[in-house]
């Protein structure tokens, strides 16, 4: 029962952070102005636009991206029975990066970047699954296919960067690949929201069965589970979440690896609790990272730099704690 309470608290955690973050920004706005903007009170049009059209969509996008990456990471770690797997394991980020880089070279505008990177992410993961199936469909070969596809698409990204105009296109590609939410508006948010609703909803519904998928294949099959179909569905939903997120935020690392571990440390390995806990924690963590990214300096700090700089030491501490407790990773 205590665990259920903790999960509920983690799920609600992003709400106060969103409200708190609305007060933060390069522009100094008071709580009264922010409230008045939200409730339709009398504030200057600039302030209202800033709160409702700039900060709000960006914060909600940060929360969704964080939740999506953490949930898909947790689901992947479970079904691949591998603690080092994360949301990007099937090459989604590299595929999305290739789509975005191509869109920038082809000058197809912000929605083109989002669309092509989404398609690129799905294509890469689809290719990894196809290869995995061709190799027999086992868990290990699927991970291996993901690694292969990931490096192949990363090389394609490098190829596009190599031929991109070094002054006009290359800086944009490089900046996108480091992750950031500075350009997010409502138009970018809604497709993300739709994909998140499907992916998060689906994985929340599937979470009872995810526990069974972490059993060995023979055991699960003995229980009468359609193992292959369930695994495919989980991978598809996780891929949808990751591709939709990366297409909005650019490449943001570590969230999909560390947050699931942190959530597991808090609520244990049962997916019934782990999936919602990872969602809440992921949203909260990325909201805080994005607050730092958009307020600390006059310039935007790429998210991937922050998640790496802070994420790696945190990962190390978690790892040490686990080792001391004498437990391995589940």
């Amino acid at each position: 029962m205590r665990r259920a309470g903790l999960v509920l608290a983690l799920c609600l955690l992003p709400l106060p952070i969103v409200f708190g973050s609305l007060l933060l920004g390069r522009m100094d706005l008071g709580a009264r102005e922010v409230w008045a903007s939200l409730l339709g009170g009398a504030v200057p049009e600039t302030v209202r636009a800033l709160v409702l059209r700039v900060r709000l969509p960006r914060l909600l996008a940060a929360a969704l991206v964080g939740a999506n990456l953490a949930v898909s990471g947790a689901a992947f770690q479970g079904i691949f029975r591998n603690p080092l797997v994360e949301s990007r394991i099937l090459g989604v980020s590299a595929g999305a990066g290739l789509g975005a880089a191509l869109a920038m070279v082809l000058r197809s505008g912000p929605l083109g970047i989002q669309g092509l990177s989404f398609i690129g992410g799905l294509l890469a993961a689809g290719l990894a699954m196809l290869l995995g199936t061709a190799f027999g469909g086992g868990i290990l070969v699927l991970v291996l296919s993901g690694v292969l596809v990931n490096s192949f698409f990363s090389s394609l990204v490098s190829l596009v960067k190599y031929f991109a105009d070094p002054y006009v296109q290359l800086p944009g590609i490089t900046f996108w690949l480091m992750g950031g939410l500075s350009t997010v508006r409502w138009a970018d948010f809604w497709p993300l929201a739709a994909a998140s609703a499907i992916g998060l909803g689906g994985l929340l519904l599937l979470r009872w069965r995810l526990n069974l998928l972490t059993l060995s294949e023979a055991e699960a099959q003995a229980l009468g589970l359609p193992v292959k179909r369930l695994r495919f569905l989980t991978v598809a939903l996780g891929t949808l979440l990751t591709a939709a997120s990366v297409s909005v935020s650019g490449v943001v690392g570590w969230i999909g690896l560390i947050v699931p571990h942190a959530a597991r440390a808090l609520v244990g390995p049962d997916h019934l609790f782990l999936i919602p806990a990872a969602a809440g924690l992921g949203a909260a963590v990325l909201l805080i990272f994005d607050d730092i990214a958009r307020t600390l300096l006059p310039t935007e700090i790429p998210l991937d730099i922050l998640t790496g700089l802070i994420g790696v030491p945190v990962f190390f501490l978690l790892f040490m704690r686990q080792i001391r407790k004498g437990g391995g990773w589940r």
Binding site: G25, R26, M27, T46, L50, V54, P171, F175, G180, S182, R294, P298, T299, E300
Partner: peptide, 16 residues
Amino acid sequence: GLPGSWQNVNIEQVLI
């Protein structure tokens, strides 16, 4: 006062 080369900022900084 902003150092370096081309810099990425957000719209709030432009408004400031």
